[in-house]
C-alpha cells in the first residue's frame, strides 16, 4: 500500500506499485490538470512537485512517491494566484494551453530554487518543457516577471 499526500490531502493506493504517478493523479484521483504529452520524460507536460522538486510524473512510479508530498497545478496556490500563474496571465502566455500546467509547475520550482535566474538560467531551466504552439518568448518573459516583477 502506497501512502502519499496530494495537495495536502492524505491518499493511498493499493493497485500496481509500478503505475506512473501521472495516471494515478489523472484517472484514479481525478486531478486532470496534470497532462500527458509523451510518457517518456521528454516534454514536461506532466510536471508536478514531489517534496518540492519538479518531477515528470509520467515516469515516476507510485512506489517511488510512498510517503511523499505531491503538489499538482490544482494545489500550487490556494486561489490560483502564485506569482508564476499571475505572470502567465499578465503576459497572455498560453495558446492552446495544454503544456502550460507543466510549464507553470516547472517555473515555480525553478524560482523556488533560484530567486532571480538569468535569461540563460530560464532558457536552460525550462528546456525540458515543450510547447508545440511555440509560446517560448512569452514563457521566458513571464518567468522573468514572476521573479522580478518586470
Amino acid at each position: 500500500m502506497v501512502k502519499l499526500q496530494v495537495n495536502g490531502k492524505d491518499r493511498s493506493w493499493d493497485g500496481d506499485p509500478d503505475l506512473p504517478l501521472l495516471w494515478y493523479l489523472r484517472d484514479e484521483a481525478g486531478l486532470t490538470g496534470t497532462k500527458f504529452g509523451c510518457g517518456q520524460a521528454l516534454c514536461g507536460a506532466c510536471t508536478v512537485h514531489v517534496d518540492g522538486t519538479a518531477v515528470r510524473s509520467c515516469i515516476t512510479a507510485m512506489s517511488a512517491v510512498d510517503g511523499s508530498k505531491v503538489v499538482t497545478i490544482e494545489g500550487l496556490h490556494p486561489t490560483g494566484d502564485h506569482p508564476v500563474q499571475k505572470a502567465w496571465r499578465e503576459l497572455n502566455v498560453p495558446q492552446c494551453g495544454f503544456c502550460q500546467a507543466g510549464q507553470i509547475m516547472q517555473a515555480a520550482a525553478l524560482l523556488a530554487g533560484q530567486g532571480n535566474p538569468s535569461d540563460d538560467d530560464i532558457r536552460s531551466g525550462m528546456s525540458g518543457n515543450i510547447c508545440r504552439c511555440g509560446c517560448y518568448q512569452r514563457i521566458a518573459a513571464a518567468v522573468r516577471v514572476a521573479a522580478t516583477g518586470t
Binding site: 486532470t32 490538470g33 497532462k35 490544482e74 500550487l76 490560483g80 502567465w88
Partner: peptide, 16 residues
Amino acid sequence: ITDLRPITVGTAVYGA
C-alpha cells in the same frame, strides 16, 4: 482569452 485563468489553474477541460 476566456480560458486564460482555467488554463493557469488546471481546470480547463481538454479531450482527456
